[in-house]
């Protein structure tokens, strides 16, 4: 099981942002994506997660192997922490949420409504969701936003455990997580601006 990307181009709002991107991530490896704001990290990750089609190129990953964590955590504020996690566990067909609660130190908060959590605690809940999906490839978009140093360490440990178990992680982040991982700076894959043709409107009509 690998995550393999060949000559990939992705677009946001119909305009190409990245092109010619190729990489392979093997089991037990993590790949960290770097690049300035607006370069297309989120667009790339959403394309890999299958949420939007790629312009060009190939994404090779086993079916239903990807768990995606975005900027927003998909947490329901009126449900408790436990109910939130149990819902995702049910959806993904797993049933043990204890390791996920444990990995992100959420047990003391398990019966609290998620709306009463702080931003960092919500993020921990959002990341704990990855564990209950039991999927091998994690695609993470700025996972450490609003986490404190201790929680970042928790997160790094969860990633390490995931990699030791043969998992794959693809992480877009600006901070150093202390992981032994390859770093890919995607700045050099920025798509060349395409000159607007005069007949663009004609083509549209």
């Amino acid at each position: 099981m690998h995550l393999n990307v060949q000559d990939l181009s992705v677009a946001r709002g119909g305009i190409a942002v990245l092109e010619g991107l190729s990489f392979t991530v093997n089991p037990g490896q993590a790949l960290i994506l770097r690049g300035p704001n607006g370069i297309g990290k989120t667009t790339l990750l959403r394309s890999l997660a299958g949420l939007q089609p790629a312009l060009n190129g190939e994404i090779n990953a086993p079916n239903e192997s990807i768990a995606y964590a975005a900027h927003s955590d998909g947490i329901k504020h009126v449900l408790t922490v436990r109910e939130n996690l149990e819902f995702w566990a049910d959806v993904f067909g797993t049933n043990d949420i204890a390791p996920a609660l444990n990995a992100f130190e959420l047990e003391p908060l398990a019966n609290r409504p998620a709306g009463a959590l702080s931003a960092g605690q919500k993020r921990r809940l959002g990341l704990a969701r990855l564990l209950v999906t039991a999927r091998p490839i994690w695609i993470l978009d700025e996972p450490t936003v609003s986490l404190d140093i201790h929680a970042v360490e928790m997160f790094a440990n969860a990633i390490r455990a995931h990699l030791v178990g043969g998992g794959i992680a693809l992480i877009a982040t600006h901070i150093d997580l202390g992981l032994e991982a390859d770093i890919l700076d995607i700045t050099s894959f920025k798509a060349k601006p395409v000159a607007m043709k005069d007949d663009a409107m004609e083509g549209f009509l």
């Binding site: 997660a49 299958g50 949420l51 995606y68 975005a70 998909g74 947490i75 504020h77 067909g93």
Partner: peptide, 16 residues
Amino acid sequence: LDWEDGTLDLLACAPL
């Protein structure tokens, strides 16, 4: 509501 809090994106990746 599911769109606003990101649940819809996550459901789109789920095995449903």
